[in-house]
Amino acid sequence: MFNYLTTFPGNGQHMINEDGVLKLARLARLKIDKAASIAAAAKLNSILGYVEQLMKVNVEGVEPMSHVHGSTNVYRADEVRPSPNPDAMLQNVPDSSGRFVRVPIIVE
């Protein structure tokens, strides 16, 4: 019988190498150095190896569940309800200039 408490080996179909880890980190705006990427790849691969068991499941004709309970059409009327204190949004800004949020210049 299958034991939940052991890790699932997986067949390595979707393994990530260090390079992949670096690309992924870049996409997620995380900084990771070469050395750390090796360790990270190993841990990610053990997880991805585990989730690969889903590949064997027959899901033909099954609707994906993107929302719970099947509720639909939740909306509001077009009315302005200003925040009671928009300035409070600005209280946590790490760097600002007047009412603007400041960041290093964006090069386009």
Binding site: V80, P82, S83, P86, M89, R99
Partner: peptide
Amino acid sequence: CGSSAAFGAEPNENVDPLT
């Protein structure tokens, strides 16, 4: 969200938690 969509407000005036 209920923030005003009007043009021409002071910077970061038409903001709320979602915005």
